[in-house]
Nucleic acid binder design. Structure first.
Lengths: 341, 341
DNA sequence: TTGTACGCGTTATCAC
DNA sequence: GTGATAACGCGTACAA
């Protein structure tokens, strides 16, 4: 007699054992029915399948993940700084798309660009035995990401130095250059830049390209035309208020991301300036609402969804061949010329 | 000698056994150290803790979830129709907020309002032994949601009939009424409505309230003023093109969600109509960009983040007291009056 | 082709 | 207080 009582669980679902009993085979056979169907006798297979359907059997993914040390565990960890940022929402969408096709589940983590929170989530993902982690590092040499050893990692969207991880990102210097060349060609010379946080590799690349573009055209670039923002809307507001109040007001503003562009436009409107007459605006990221603005926002479009898909692709590839050389994919941004410039 | 070879795994992390060996105690004691620390001798506790730190031990959440049938498994399943819709992104954010505070992980699923895809994900979530599922049903009597038995479910954002699940949503009729009363007070009589899909309970509630508001004011409501959209941007475009080309052009449009409002504004701009002079526009949902539009969009604001937080709260509450009566929370929307009306 | 039995890393029961 | 050990549901090496 059993000396161990079964505790009252919420959902007593059928397991291998139940199916085995119903089909009059061993649990090994049932397991094989899903994992290596070719090994089964056609007749046995029929019986098993019927039993499975009758019992509404679904393999328990938790048990499977616990047992499986070599094969895929069908779970991806996805870190995101801020899900309400449309750029990252689009990345998430791409990841989900690709994951769904492979029957992978996605565990979503929101770091808020906070190191401690990110570290917590990374530990959690390890403890969940994910197959791998897709993550935009908080900065260049993000130690919590670099510390991720023995686990496939794909750095997405942001540069990571000194790692041997696979990566996908968009050419930020190119994007910024496209924006700047466009403004310069339009005759602008006093082009301000509202940048993102210093630690953010993406922001820095765009900032550098802003500087370089001006230098390449022998255009002055006083420090007063640079504003360091936070990639949030209020950062754009603060930046625009400062820059547009300068005695020598810039004739154009290049904004580092779409959330800040929002703030800039609000200020521009509030100040009663005309766009692009008084000041031209070029944003980064091309959210759905860019075209609905009036004037519609000229912006740098990034293939974010594609980036998400690729990250999954790289991750799965790495699972199959752990020894392969790290692969780095750089996607191409695109200038969407609209009425704001 | 072992007849079972350990397969080469990617990340051989320390387990209870390793800690137990290092601390010279049994695995039971180590387990208790994390789960019921009070039971341990102070001295033993010290030894165990030290061993844990030395080995960088983290409990394996997968094994824990497999074993645990009574306690919480610290995993929530979250379904979302479309993560790129800012309304749902905000809900996700709220859920993540609350989940993080309780050290819960979130498994994110994107249904695309597609029944088959949703069913797939629901099966997956069961197979992952989630503690419960937070989901906006695709429609009123969504069978795949109603079929979710033996598992805590919280219906979020959209009405679900004939269930005993907990729920949180926003009063859609009230929201629509606020919008309509506002337009009527401004003197509008020919108020068109661009509705969402028929199957979507939320859209239907807003549609009904549109009708009722007009009726309450004894205003005519010809079928030509109603356009059935798809809650996506192109739906808004199609709707606006149709409605604004009517011989008797409406003087105002009430749009069912923010994505479609985007499309409407594009068409309005393209047609060269002035807002609110030629036509007033009121949207639903209050995304960050509503204020950046020119004119800024009058809209109904929903406490989406709060809704997400509450859903988690309800879920955890249900876990603790499975027998409690279903709880239904109705949140209050708010009219944000801006320049588009 | 199928069955037996072990182990994945835990939690929970019972005995000491 | 602590230890020994069954059980969670599954995959798989090995025997049959």
């Amino acid at each position: 007699m059993p000396r161990y009582r079964k505790p009252a669980g919420p959902a007593p679902r059928a397991g291998l054992t139940d199916v085995a009993r119903a089909a009059r085979v061993s649990i090994a056979t049932v397991s094989r029915a899903t994992n290596s169907p070719d090994l089964l006798d056609k007749d046995t297979m029929q019986r098993v399948k019927r039993a499975m359907e009758k019992l509404d059997y679904t393999p328990n993914r938790v048990a499977r993940r616990l047992r499986q040390r070599t094969g895929p565990r069908h779970l991806i960890g996805l870190m995101v700084p801020e899900i309400e940022n449309p750029h990252f929402a689009e990345i998430v969408r791409g990841v989900e798309d690709a994951a769904y096709e492979q029957a992978y589940a996605v565990m979503l983590c929101n770091s808020d660009n906070n190191d401690a929170k990110q570290q917590f989530y990374l530990d959690l993902l390890r403890a969940e035995s994910v197959d791998g982690i897709i993550i935009p590092p908080i900065h260049d040499r993000d130690p919590s990401v670099l510390g991720l050893t023995g686990l496939p990692v794909v750095a997405i969207d942001r540069r990571l130095r000194g790692s041997s991880f696979d990566s996908v990102r968009v050419d930020n210097r190119l994007g910024a250059r496209l924006a700047m060349e466009h403004l310069l060609a339009r005759g602008h010379r006093a082009i301000a830049h509202i940048a993102g946080p210093r630690q953010n590799p993406t922001s820095m690349e765009r900032l550098e390209a802003w500087r370089e573009s001006l230098a390449a055209h022998r255009v002055d670039c006083p420090a007063s035309l640079l504003w360091q923002g936070n990639n949030l809307r209020d950062g754009g507001v603060a930046g625009a208020e400062a820059l547009l109040s300068l005695r020598k007001r810039p004739t154009a503003v290049f904004v580092c991301n779409c959330m800040m562009a929002l703030g800039v436009l609000e200020v521009v409107n509030r100040m009663g300036l005309s766009v692009p007459g008084d000041v031209a605006v070029v944003g980064y990221d091309d959210p759905p609402w860019a075209q609905a603005l009036r004037p519609a926002l000229t912006a740098i479009r990034q293939p974010a969804r594609e980036m998400g898909r690729m990250a999954v692709e790289l991750l799965l590839r790495r699972l199959n061949s752990p020894g392969a050389r790290p692969e780095h994919r750089i996607l191409i941004p695109e200038l969407m010329i609209r009425q704001s410039s």
